[in-house]
Structure formats: structure tokens, C-alpha cells
Design a protein around this nucleic acid. Structure first.
Lengths: 336, 336
DNA sequence: GTGAAAGCGCTAACAT
DNA sequence: ATGTTAGCGCTTTCAC
């Protein structure tokens, strides 16, 4: 059985409340008794019962981070940074990976957040925006990180400005490199995900502005990971008609595409230029190194940590400060 | 404020315990009252208070998984599979990533396990073996997964037999391919980690048996990730004298090495053969595809999930069944 | 400086 | 079939 305050109280021949005060270093307890109690606690390996403390205090000092896939390197890097950040404020992070499944996410929301097993949550991904919005209205500390704030969402959001970088990227491909047939691989508006939709939307918009067609045959949807990239690569190989450049939804997808094409002797970027988004660590040193858009993970994490902790401490976040946006940056390397 | 049984009881004009029984579908409650109560609960969006339930029942239905780095693809794939597995038994998984830091892991052990915030834990990595052993003696359900059971450790362990596969791998490199200078990159015995040490130890042992030297200059220690591989690659390039084959601690390290060498025009496997261990998804489709050792992740996860749940249900695991070992398998692809 | 008592939200044994 | 009561482990008044 686990050691409780009661056990310690018996051995020390004092009351439970005295033990509680002693271990919480209350000034009203005699230094000698305090020492005595501390020694006994130490000897018995006492650790406070989390659920009991949580029930009493109303807080668990736990924050959950909700991501799509734990095996996406962007998410795992971001998670690590955020964890570091909130630890400074005395919070621990528990990771919930939904694998993009709406029901699974909902279960996590219920069993972790609504049930008060954690004090708050950071969503790096979501398919339950309405539910989340409702929870936030009910006063549960929540924020979005790296996800554009759409519609009537009132939840504090830490975000990056992808638009100008995608603009820079396409400008680079079109004006500097003379590409005319620029394809896209990733999730499109068929997806529920606002963020994913956004990348595609910007791509379409910029092509429009340049008067270039976004041809059906150069657009590969429903893919967002390395394996998806492999598949896109296969399709490109099988098609007669290929784009001269391919803008990918994220780095992992891009690396999958490059892999497949390279194996078939297609030269990157000679035959097809390929770009990513995220700038995961690996992409600096792939073959060829990936031209991509850097997302400011450190700034995002720093800001997200602070914002959530503010919320947890009951600070009202003024509406106009509830969205922070950091610039992204085009990183030109060898793949385009 | 959150909705409690009390709130529901007031609206339904019944006692708290009636509400509790109704929502727990007790047969003693009138069907009509039950319906009425359920409706109110639904309308108010009632979710049971986790800490209160945990305090009462002594269980949280949460399991924590402790890994080294969340951004290691082997760990994240394994974590995902285990999560799936334990969900079948009604448990949720919370991921704790220690980044290999002993103190950080200790904090997690205290704040999650000893404090009863989770019912049990799966360690895919640890630097606090002694503490963990003590906890297990005290009856906390714990298991190791993919970590050799060393010394006097009595904790149930699900493991793979790497020895025969490393043997197969070296046999293949030496007898089939005629390699004489086989290097090693990864962590060595300088590390505290039993598992890491083991890989190196087996490598040494097999070379010994073949009467081949394990030359200092071909051994690169203190690396275990992609960036480490990049660094090893640099060192190999700078050295006059190169091994003809390099056995890497894991796939990510191997991919880092291959990347750096390829960029310098060194042919893999022509100039240097490179092998990994893990068989992460990506390695089937890298360039060249990686020769590696497959670890039976599905079997490990399945077995680990079952073992921990048995423990959680109070089943004694007979000593001789407390270690399960699954075979691994040499996967020959293009990099060696 | 220390102890007694109440209560956080929930469940279950025991009335009625 | 429903209500009363006690208690899980802890903290926090309020007495003494």
C-alpha cells in the first residue's frame, strides 16, 4: 500500500493536519517537529497522492498536448520545445496523439480535459473545433498552436504567417526559376482541417495571381506523410505529363516524393523541383537538401507556453492579443 | 464551474447517490428516473471528475509510456502500437519523453507514477533502473519493453533477441561480402544504457569470433540519432582510413551517415556498406534502401499491452514467464 | 504550535 | 427504488 499522511502522522504521533503543514513547510510548525516529520516522510518514501491533491486544489499541474501523429517530426520537435517551456512554470506535459482520428481525439478531450485530469491543453491539431470552442467558453484553458484561427473561433492562437512565405516560394519558383507547371501534393479542401486547407488555398491564390493554371493532373490530394510522398512519387512516374515543380504540404511528404523519384533516375531539381514546408531537422541534410519554409518552432513554443500559463493563472487575454503570428522564412537549398 | 453529480441531483430532485447509480446503470434504479437523470446529465454536459473517481477507486485508467526521445521514429511507431493495444482494455496512454535525461525521468516517475496519476507504466527506456525496481517491489505495475533484462532486475520484460540477427548481419557482411574492416557507430559501454551497451557488445563478440579486429579508428561512439549520423559521416570523410562497412546503432543514425557520405560522392554500398537496426518505416525507401534488422514492433506491443494489463488486474506473472523474447530478422536491402 | 473538523466529487454499504 | 452516511487523501479554516 501507498504511504499516506495518516501513516506518517501515526509514526510521528501527531495529527494529519500537522503533517500536511510540516511537509508544506508552513511557518506555524515547530522546527523540530518539522524535521522529525520530514525524516519519517523521507524514510517511508512518501509521495503525495496526485488525485487527492487534485480533488482538493482543483488542479493537476498537468497540461496535455494534442497532436495529429507523434511520428511526424514537426510535431515531435514542437512538442519537445513546448514541454521544456511549460516545465519552467511547474507544469508537466502529457502527449496525446490522435492519429488524425476525430473520435479518438474526442475521447482524449473527454477523458483528459473535461474530466479534469489535466488543467489545460495545447492543440497543435484538431478535428473537434466546435467542442473545443465550447470548452473554452466554459472557462477551460486552451490554446491552439500553429493552426490558423478561422471563422468565429475565439481561442487564443499562436501561429505563423505562412502566406507570405508561400508567396515567396512561388515567386522564387516562377520568376527566378521560370517554372510554369507547378503542382501541389498534400491535403486539400476536402479535408476538414483548416490549416491544411489553408496551404492549398494560398497555393491556388498565388498561382491565380500569376495567371498560371493549377492543373488537376498536377495536384495530388489526401497525402500528408512520408508514405504518402512515396505514393505521390509513384503517380508522378506513371503519368506522362509531369509538373516541373511540386510544392509539398510538408517536409516528410516532400522527402517521400524525392525518394521515389530519385530511385527512378529522375533528377531533383533538374527534372522536377520539389519543396516542403516545416524545415524539420533532417531536411537540411537530405539528398538533395530540401528547399522548404522554416516555421519558427522556438518562438511558437515559447509564446504558446506563456499564453497557456497566463490562462491557467486566470489572466484574461485581451481579445486583440489572443492571436500571435510569427513570420516564416523561405529556406532555399538544393531541391528547387 | 464544472458540472457535478450534486448539480444533477438538484435538478432531478433526487439524491447524489441516486444520480451516481443511475449514471453507472445500476439495476436498482427505476427506468424512468434513470432516463430523466441521463437526460439532465446529457443536457448539462456532465463528465465525471477524474481525480475524484481516481481517489475513490484507486485507479486512473491511465498508463504512461516512458521513452527516450519522442522524435525517434522507432519509439514513436512503438508508442502508437502500444497505445492501440491498451485502448482495447480501456486504458489511455500518456507519453512521457525524457530526452535521455535521468533527472527528468525521475521527475516523471515521481509526478506521474509514484503520485498515482497513472495506474502503471511501460518503460521503453530508463536511466533509473534501481528506483524502478523498488517501485515494482512495492507493487506498482511496471514493465520494460524492448530492453534486455540485465542483472537482478525482476521486472517483466518484453524484448527482442538482437544477438542472432547481429550475428546474421555480420556473417553476411563478412562471409558473403568479404568485408574485413567493419566499423561501428553508436553508443558504447561508456553509456549507462544496458541496451545500447548490448548492441556494441555483440558486435565486438562476433568480430572476435571471426578473428577480425575491432579497430578504434573505425568505432564512433556517443551518437544515436540522425544528427549524430551526420557527424559520424563527417568524421569518416576526414579520416584517411575508412572502414569498408559500418554497422550503425539504429536506422536514423545510419541514414545520417549515408546522407553525409552520399553528398561527398562516396558510394553506398560500393565504397562503404552501411547498416542500421530498427527497420523504421522510412528506411525501406531511402536511397539506397537500408539494410537493417527488423524489430518485431507489433509483437512487442501486443505482448507488452497484455502483460501490463495482467499486472494491473493483479495477476501474478510467474517468474519464468516474466520475460518474453521475440526473434528479430535481418532485412537485406541496398545499403550493404 | 498543534489538533479537530469540514469538504473537494465520487461510490458503495447500509438503511428505509 | 431511493436516501443516508461514510470515506478515499489531502488542505484549510478555526479552535485551543
Amino acid at each position: 500500500m501507498a504511504v499516506t499522511l495518516k501513516n506518517i502522522a501515526q509514526r510521528a504521533d501527531v495529527s494529519v493536519s500537522t503533517v500536511s503543514k510540516a511537509l508544506n513547510d508552513s511557518p506555524k510548525i515547530n522546527d523540530q517537529t518539522k524535521k522529525r516529520i520530514e525524516n519519517i516522510a523521507e524514510k517511508l518514501d512518501y509521495v503525495p497522492h496526485g488525485p487527492a491533491q487534485a480533488l482538493k486544489s482543483g488542479q493537476t499541474k498537468l497540461i496535455s498536448m494534442i497532436v495529429d501523429r507523434i511520428d511526424n517530426l514537426y510535431y515531435s520537435e514542437l512538442t519537445h520545445l513546448i514541454k521544456r517551456e511549460i516545465k519552467k512554470y511547474g507544469y508537466n506535459l502529457v502527449l496525446c496523439s490522435t492519429m488524425g482520428d476525430k473520435e479518438e481525439e474526442k475521447e482524449y478531450i473527454t477523458s483528459m480535459i473535461q474530466s479534469h485530469n489535466v488543467d489545460g491543453a495545447i492543440f497543435a491539431f484538431s478535428r473537434n473545433e466546435q467542442l473545443i470552442d465550447k470548452l473554452f467558453q466554459n472557462g477551460i484553458p486552451l490554446i491552439y498552436v500553429s493552426r490558423p484561427r478561422g471563422g468565429n473561433c475565439s481561442i487564443p492562437t499562436v501561429n505563423y504567417d505562412l502566406e507570405s512565405s508561400i508567396y515567396d516560394l512561388l515567386e522564387y519558383l516562377i520568376e527566378r526559376q521560370g517554372h510554369q507547371n507547378i503542382g501541389y501534393a498534400g491535403l486539400t479542401s476536402s479535408s476538414i482541417l483548416y490549416d491544411h486547407d489553408q496551404r492549398y488555398t494560398i497555393y491556388r491564390k498565388v498561382l491565380d495571381e500569376y495567371g498560371l493554371p493549377a492543373e488537376e493532373k498536377y495536384i495530388f490530394t489526401e497525402y500528408n506523410d512520408y508514405e504518402g510522398g512515396i505514393e505521390v512519387g509513384r503517380q508522378i512516374i506513371n503519368n506522362q505529363d509531369r509538373p516541373s515543380a511540386l510544392v509539398c504540404f510538408n517536409d516528410e511528404l516532400a522527402l517521400g516524393v524525392i525518394q521515389t523519384l530519385s530511385l527512378q533516375g529522375i533528377d531533383i531539381p533538374g527534372d522536377i523541383a520539389v519543396t516542403g514546408i516545416d524545415n524539420i531537422t533532417m531536411s537540411a541534410s537530405t539528398n538533395p537538401p530540401l528547399t522548404t519554409i522554416n516555421l519558427p518552432k522556438k518562438k511558437l513554443s515559447f509564446c504558446a507556453g506563456k499564453m497557456l500559463v497566463d490562462l491557467l493563472q486566470g489572466k484574461e487575454i485581451p481579445h486583440k492579443e489572443s492571436t500571435k503570428t510569427f513570420p516564416t522564412e523561405l529556406v532555399i537549398r538544393g531541391s528547387a
